[in-house]
Write a protein that binds this DNA or RNA. Structure first.
Length: 392
DNA sequence: CTATCCCGCCATACG
DNA sequence: CGTATGGCGGGATAG
């Protein structure tokens, strides 16, 4: 009951979406090269976002307080040999004693949230994978090991692995063991997904939702029936794949989606009911996925100026969907190694990095045999292609 | 303020 | 039961 209230409240207003709907007086979409686009004559006033200050809903009772005993204290068994910095995590068990314990003093870096972001973690994961795999002929990795090497909780590894699986970059072999396939097959995967997206009429749905989001502000709440986790198969994996299709099925010139639109298209059933963005929780998942995709350089976030507001959009910028081209993981790794020279790598990771860079300079090409068309794989998203024809 | 999204509790699956 | 997975949302943090 009140749960819905909470969700609704959490949804805030739906973000208006810049469409060509009624005001297509703007020049050309093609103008939108990749970043912020100049000015558009979209009628923002139409989309009144009722602030609705009501529903304080401050009842956050129940739920016992978190135990102050994170047993993961001695996580990195690896004795800090020469780590210049503690690398967050392993720090200590309690966090209330000292006041500001984040932003360390020297090296003026942002020892904070960003350093623990899924995106960064993902980059480190790639490096780690590269490492683990380099010596292993079987290309099999042990999650525990990887987690330890990266000094992160196992839980976080799963977040990444899930997306990697969706990208066919790895597959489970045994309990806690996964085989790394690499990202070389991305272009083909993209081509496949794109094809499927077309078949699923996804482009149309996106369009529809975008327009809807622009037209109204709020609709009859409480009409939802399904429970929090049963509206659709919100498997991270399928969501992830779906999101991809979503981002590049757009006309090649644009290939962009807003998180709200994406989430609505992906997890709510079509126009049948409403277009209100799904629960806040679901959006969080999308953020998670987007983060690793961004880390991989498959998509990037840009801001679309919409009146006074800035609408974040995701633009596909990965490899062109192609049947036979391949994705250069090394280039990918190189990119972020270069971008954040100050990446808070684990001492161990640092060594790895060096190794990677070394091999890169050697021009080590490990294509072929990497990813082959798995005979089984047939998990296709399914996208919950519900009734579109059913009259409302 | 709102947009993001880290953290880790705890449901679920499996043995 | 225990362990492996990963759904889910509180609430902290970035902008």
């Amino acid at each position: 009951m009140s749960q819905w209230a909470a969700m609704l409240e959490a949804n805030k207003e739906n973000i208006p979406y810049p469409l060509d709907m009624h005001a297509l007086q703007k020049p050309t979409v093609s103008q939108i090269r990749e970043a912020v686009l100049p000015e558009i004559g979209v009628d923002v006033s139409t989309v009144t976002h009722s602030v609705l200050p009501s529903s304080p809903l401050s009842q956050k009772s129940n739920i016992s307080v978190q135990s102050q005993d994170p047993k993961l204290s001695g996580y990195n068994s690896e004795s800090v040999s020469d780590s210049p910095r503690p690398l967050g995590l392993s720090t200590s068990s309690r966090r209330e004693s000292s006041d500001e314990l984040d932003v360390e003093s020297e090296d003026g870096e942002v020892t904070s949230r960003k350093e623990k972001s899924l995106g960064l973690l993902c980059q480190r994961f790639l490096i780690a994978m590269n490492e683990e795999t380099r010596t292993s002929m079987t290309r099999e990795v042990h999650l525990e090991t990887v987690a330890r090497k990266m000094s992160v909780e196992k839980r976080r590894i799963y977040d990444i692995v899930n997306v990697m699986e969706a990208l066919d970059a790895m597959s489970k072999t045994n309990k806690s063991y996964y085989r790394w396939h690499g990202l070389e097959g991305l272009p083909k995967l993209m081509a496949d997904l794109q094809k499927e997206a077309i078949e699923e009429r996804l482009p149309e749905r996106v369009l529809r939702v975008e327009q809807a989001m622009c037209s109204f502000t709020e609709l009859s709440p409480g009409s939802r029936k399904a429970g929090t986790k049963d509206i659709v198969d919100s498997s991270l994996l399928s969501l992830e794949e779906a999101m991809e299709l979503d981002s590049f099925l757009e006309p090649v010139s644009t290939r962009r989606v807003s998180l709200d639109v994406a989430s609505t298209v992906l997890i709510k059933d079509p126009e049948t009911e409403g277009f209100e963005p799904p629960s806040r929780s679901r959006c969080r998942r999308l953020y998670d996925i987007a983060n690793v995709l961004v880390a991989l350089g498959l998509i990037k976030k840009v801001h679309y100026l919409f009146g006074t507001k800035k609408i974040p959009l995701f633009v596909y910028c990965g490899p062109e969907p192609d049947e036979n081209s391949t994705f250069d993981v090394n280039a990918c790794i190189e990119r972020f190694l270069a971008s954040n020279a100050s990446t808070p790598l684990t001492p161990h990771m640092k060594a790895t990095t060096a190794a990677v860079q070394h091999s890169l300079s050697l021009g080590k090409r490990s294509n072929s045999e990497a990813n082959l068309r798995a005979p089984m794989s047939q998990k296709m998203p399914r996208l919950k292609c519900v009734s579109l024809s059913t009259a409302g």
